[in-house]
Computed example of a mutant assay.
Amino acid sequence: MKSDHGAGAISRRHLLAGAAGSAVLVTLRPAGAAPANRTETTESAIRRFAGDAEIRSGRVSLDLPPLVENGNTVPLTVSVESPMTEADHVRRIGVFNEKNPQPNVVTLHLGPRAGRAHVATRIRLADTQRITAIAEMSDGTYWSASADAIVTLAACLEG
Rank of each mutant, 00 (worst) to 15 (best):
G32I: 07
A33G: 15
N37K: 14
R38I: 15
R38H: 13
R38N: 12
R38T: 10
T39P: 00
E40D: 06
T41P: 04
E43N: 05
E43C: 02
S44C: 00
S44T: 14
S44L: 06
A45N: 03
I46F: 04
I46L: 05
R47Y: 03
R47T: 10
R48M: 02
R48W: 04
R48A: 09
F49E: 00
G51C: 03
D52I: 09
A53R: 11
A53P: 06
E54L: 07
E54P: 03
E54G: 00
I55P: 05
R56N: 11
R56C: 04
R56H: 08
S57Q: 07
S57A: 08
G58A: 13
R59C: 04
V60P: 11
V60I: 14
S61Q: 07
S61Y: 09
S61T: 11
L62R: 10
D63C: 11
D63W: 11
L64Q: 00
L64I: 04
P65G: 06
L67R: 14
N70K: 12
N70V: 11
G71W: 01
N72V: 05
V74Y: 01
P75N: 01
L76N: 02
L76C: 01
L76Q: 00
T77V: 14
V78G: 14
S79Q: 13
V80C: 03
V80D: 02
S82A: 15
P83Q: 12
M84W: 07
M84Q: 12
T85I: 02
E86D: 11
E86I: 12
A87D: 15
A87W: 05
D88H: 14
H89R: 09
V90E: 01
V90I: 03
G94M: 08
V95L: 08
V95H: 05
V95I: 15
F96W: 06
F96C: 06
F96P: 04
N97I: 03
E98R: 01
K99I: 13
N100R: 05
N100E: 09
P101F: 07
P101D: 13
P103H: 07
V105G: 08
V105T: 14
V105H: 06
V106H: 13
T107K: 06
T107D: 08
L110W: 12
G111H: 07
G111Q: 05
G111A: 10
P112I: 06
P112L: 02
P112E: 00
R113S: 01
R113T: 04
A114H: 07
G115E: 04
R116M: 09
R116F: 13
R116S: 13
R116W: 14
A117G: 09
H118I: 07
V119S: 11
T121A: 14
R122N: 15
I123A: 02
I123L: 01
I123T: 04
R124V: 03
R124P: 02
R124M: 12
L125R: 04
L125C: 03
A126I: 06
R130T: 15
I131V: 15
A133G: 11
A135T: 10
M137H: 11
S138I: 10
D139T: 05
D139G: 02
G140F: 06
T141L: 01
W143V: 08
W143C: 08
S144W: 12
A145L: 10
S146E: 06
S146G: 07
S146N: 04
S146A: 11
S146P: 00
A147R: 10
D148R: 08
A149Q: 02
I150A: 10
I150L: 06
V151S: 03
V151D: 05
T152L: 14
L153V: 12
L153F: 09
A154E: 15
A154Q: 15
A154N: 15
